[in-house]
Design a protein around this nucleic acid. Structure first.
Lengths: 242, 242
DNA sequence: CGCCTGGTTGACCACTATCAAGGTTAGTGG
DNA sequence: CCACTAACCTTGATAGTGGTCAACCAGGCG
């Protein structure tokens, strides 16, 4: 009951299909919803929508990075997800957005009217399948994040984050040896349930141990990928010693 | 950027519909999928499936409570969700279950072959809509849990949990004045990202302050609902003082 | 009766938050 | 071009929340 299950692939970062009958189409985030909506531009720090706003539009990121987060009344913030090219934002059965969406960089997004999406979902199975796949992927990411927030140490959280960013970069054609972080230390901290000081300290430790290098704060080079992977999955010691 | 958004209802515990076109049917978890699958019984502590198993079946709880969780290699556990009557289990676009599902009580469940569900989703929009609503609700719950795990204090986590259990009980006809917890303190702790000792201590504090009463460990009476609600939403002091 | 699981409480302490200071970078205007 | 400013980043010192370890209790069951 308490041992780990059999060896399995984390669903994170793989594009799922839906069963057999719906599994024939293209992966969800390679397809564009541009035909249903209109492409728009936003500049860094723009807010696409606020938590609690009526869900009138759904978005797909074309270029840039978006940050989705919830707030507590006293200002404590939890980032739910960073969205990259291809990711859908605002897919919910509810009538109000469950999070705020901020642009971390200048953006190109497809904006789709919710009512139009509904119509297209009714008439086009392919669209429906893509929506289903996108929600399912979002759920899978959230469930992995629950494990991270509930049970992983600070070092493991940062390692998991870097690992996810590496895989994201590889999906976009990177070699997995270096990544560019468009978000601040505070954004990372609010994603990982830590403070920005703790994120800094873990990164400094990783640097001191020769696992990463940081030519500048937003650029990270991966010198020893294995240590990062193992720490991310909770296999190594929970604490990286200096 | 850091102030709370406008006043909004947490999506948790409300049954969503999907937009306008798909919003006409019954709420997802009032409907039974019994017609597509077969009703089965399981006894407490049975495992429905393991994380990483191939997704051959999907389940709907008819009676009893199921616990869904992920494990790290060293045995650290994160409970993703407790499932009650009406809840769907195993809806994922992936081919492997993302969590293990254990029976916390004796169960009656509907077991549906994944391939059968796929077929019915193709032929019956109503089934499709219900699946979409169920996944969407699961996502909404997970996103609220991210905020809990990432940013709430131990007291706030326990208060949120009790509040959710109260609302669950009310959905099943309870008066909101008392709840029965089918799970152990360890299960609660693994759900809230705490230890069982901390859960005990918070409950003892709530008891000492006259907010709850515990005639026995699995039965909790709510004496001052307001304090619980406010603490759950992060409005009170983060720490309940003894 | 004795064992085992689960619950509770206490003592202690570690991990991470908090508070504080200083450094670096990017953007802006003179 | 340079000074000024404001974010952002980093590091240090200290403290606190919740974890760890331990002991004991209660109830159920063989």
């Amino acid at each position: 009951m308490r041992q780990a299950g059999p060896d399995f692939q984390p669903a994170m970062n793989r594009v799922p299909d839906w069963g057999q009958t719906f599994g024939q189409s293209q992966p969800a985030n390679m397809d564009s919803f541009a035909a249903i909506g209109t492409v728009m531009r936003r500049v860094s720090k723009d807010t696409l929508f606020w938590e609690g706003d009526p869900v009138d539009h759904v978005y797909q990121v074309v270029r840039g990075v978006v940050c989705l987060y919830k707030l507590l009344p006293d200002g404590r913030r939890q980032v739910a997800r960073f969205c990259h090219a291809g990711d859908m934002i605002g897919l919910t059965a509810d009538h109000r957005y469950p999070y705020t969406a901020d642009a971390l960089t200048d953006l190109a997004v497809v904006r789709i009217r919710r009512t139009d999406l509904d119509l297209r979902m009714e008439s086009d199975r392919n669209v429906l399948q893509k929506v289903l796949a996108a929600i399912s992927q979002e759920l899978s990411l959230a469930q992995n994040q629950l494990l991270l927030l509930g049970r992983k140490s600070a070092s493991e959280r940062v390692a998991s984050f870097l690992q996810a960013m590496i895989e994201q970069a590889q999906r976009e054609g990177g070699d997995g040896r270096s990544i560019t972080l468009p978000m601040t230390r505070v954004d990372i901290a609010d994603f990982l349930g830590l403070t920005h000081e703790t994120v800094c300290r873990v990164l400094s430790t990783l640097k001191a141990e020769g696992i990463i290098a940081t030519p500048d704060p937003h650029r990270i080079e991966i010198l020893v990928p294995n240590v990062l992977e193992e720490t991310a999955e909770g296999e190594g010691p929970q604490r990286l010693c200096a």
